[in-house]
Computed example of a mutant assay.
Amino acid sequence: MKKIINLVVLVPVGIVLIVLSVANRQSVRLALNPFNPEDSVLSVSAPFFVFLFLAVIFGLVLGSFATWVSQHKYRKRARNEAHEAVKWHTEAEKQRVRAENIPSQALIPSKSV
């Protein structure tokens, strides 16, 4: 089922990316100097689809980082609760061993007549 869903999603995305690449293969220049756009030191020439893909990748990385930062409090809480669960599990194991070491005669109540 997962393979079918991946095919239904990834095949159209792949087709769109190929169409974008073919349609936008003309060379463009990205000038990073706003005061002198003809400055060749701060400009890059590449096919337009390269800049499109770089923008998409940059957006994915930036969005992933923002999500990771915003979920910090949940990861911290999960870490603290996992540490506390280990502490309580260790304590329960100590108590179980201690209960096993108590002589069985001590568990039987004595009858006083």
Rank of each mutant, 00 (worst) to 15 (best):
F53G: 13
T67E: 11
F53T: 11
L52A: 04
Q105Y: 06
V61Q: 11
H83V: 15
P47L: 03
A31M: 05
P103V: 02
L62E: 03
L10N: 15
I15E: 06
P103Q: 01
W68R: 14
F51K: 07
M1A: 15
K2G: 14
R96H: 10
Q71V: 12
R29Y: 02
K73P: 06
A78W: 00
W88K: 15
R25V: 00
Q26L: 01
L54Q: 09
S112V: 14
N33G: 05
E38D: 08
S27R: 14
N24I: 09
R96V: 08
L52G: 10
N101K: 10
F51N: 03
Q95D: 11
S64V: 02
Q95Y: 05
V56E: 06
L107V: 12
R77Y: 06
I4N: 12
P109C: 05
R29M: 03
P12W: 08
V13H: 00
V13L: 09
R77S: 14
E93H: 11
P12K: 03
V11S: 07
R25G: 01
A106T: 04
V61E: 07
G59D: 01
L62P: 01
R98Q: 07
V50E: 07
A31C: 08
S43C: 08
S104L: 02
E100D: 13
L7C: 07
L7G: 13
R75L: 05
R29D: 01
Q26F: 03
V13T: 13
H83P: 05
R98N: 03
K76L: 05
V28Q: 13
W88T: 13
L32M: 09
K94D: 08
W88Y: 02
I5M: 14
F53H: 07
F53Q: 04
D39E: 08
A23G: 01
N80H: 11
F48D: 04
F49Q: 03
P37E: 14
K76D: 07
L60S: 09
N101I: 04
G14Q: 02
Y74D: 11
F58E: 08
F51G: 07
V19D: 01
N101C: 02
I102D: 01
L60Q: 10
V28T: 13
